[in-house]
Design a protein around this nucleic acid. Sequence first.
DNA 1: GTTGAAACACCCTCAAT
DNA 2: ATTGAGGGTGTTTCAAC
Lengths: 161, 161
Amino acid sequence: MIDNATKIDSFDMAILNALQKDGRISQRDLADRVGLSQNACWRRLNRLNGSGLIKASRTEIALAELGFDLTVFVMIRTRHHSKDWADMFRKHVESLPQVRDFYRIGGDWDYLVRVVTRGMADYDRFYQRLITDVDLATVTGFFAMESIIENRPVDLQALQS
Amino acid sequence: MIDNATKIDSFDMAILNALQKDGRISQRDLADRVGLSQNACWRRLNRLNGSGLIKASRTEIALAELGFDLTVFVMIRTRHHSKDWADMFRKHVESLPQVRDFYRIGGDWDYLVRVVTRGMADYDRFYQRLITDVDLATVTGFFAMESIIENRPVDLQALQS
DNA sequence: GTTGAAACACCCTCAAT
DNA sequence: ATTGAGGGTGTTTCAAC
């Protein structure tokens, strides 16, 4: 899906870095920040937009202030390991609106789901729907007491040391 | 921190919903989508920007394509439960660049950290630094085999059923 | 890669309804 | 709440270097 001919240099990295932190930065400020002219920066941005490296731009909402104040990490162990069952289970989990992240993981557990709910009653609605008509071996929820860091941008230019 | 006088109606919810999905949507398209005039939409957007409900706008990068292809959920059990120790531990974890999310959780474990690394060697750098000079009871990593859903917007208007 | 300029789209404000 | 219009800002393209 990514154009492998796309070569990414440190200017591109700086652009992506800045966009991660602030998706609304103006092209003038972006150009200043990375040390390019507005024109050159625009050309690179255009290339990056076409490269597939930029997935989306999202506004982050203070969900807790709107009542979505309970985050739960749900670890799931399944009993079935066929392709068909896995496909069915995926669709089932994707259909639950409280789900924000959904990973297939290795180790003791098979899946990890991060759900954001409007309090415990809403979490229980999620849980009841999760286990309805689906045969799961174990389901355990780890309740977030405090979000210390959420969705922190990755430093693309960090030295590998 | 939130102005409690701010009343949020279904138009505001629709605006926040749209911004979650696309933080770069033009005000014209946004107004069309939520069914308001551009002018009315702008006024609401202004109010929302001042309300604290809008935290940030971030561009999501295809990190795996840039080599950041290993996501690990790290569960941590501590041995110390004083305020001072907790403050020190927080700063320690925040200083590690691979950390994207950091929660204090309830249940069997004390903390959950989501890290994104450039492969296993980079994860091991994180791990070694994590346990250096810090006395942890247990550290277990759950390695993501597949990201099925990542950072899905919350449907603010979903019926509570 | 750079600057500068023109054309266009978008944002913000205001007036009137 | 709405439409419409004007001015300022930001984006995009182009020409020249």
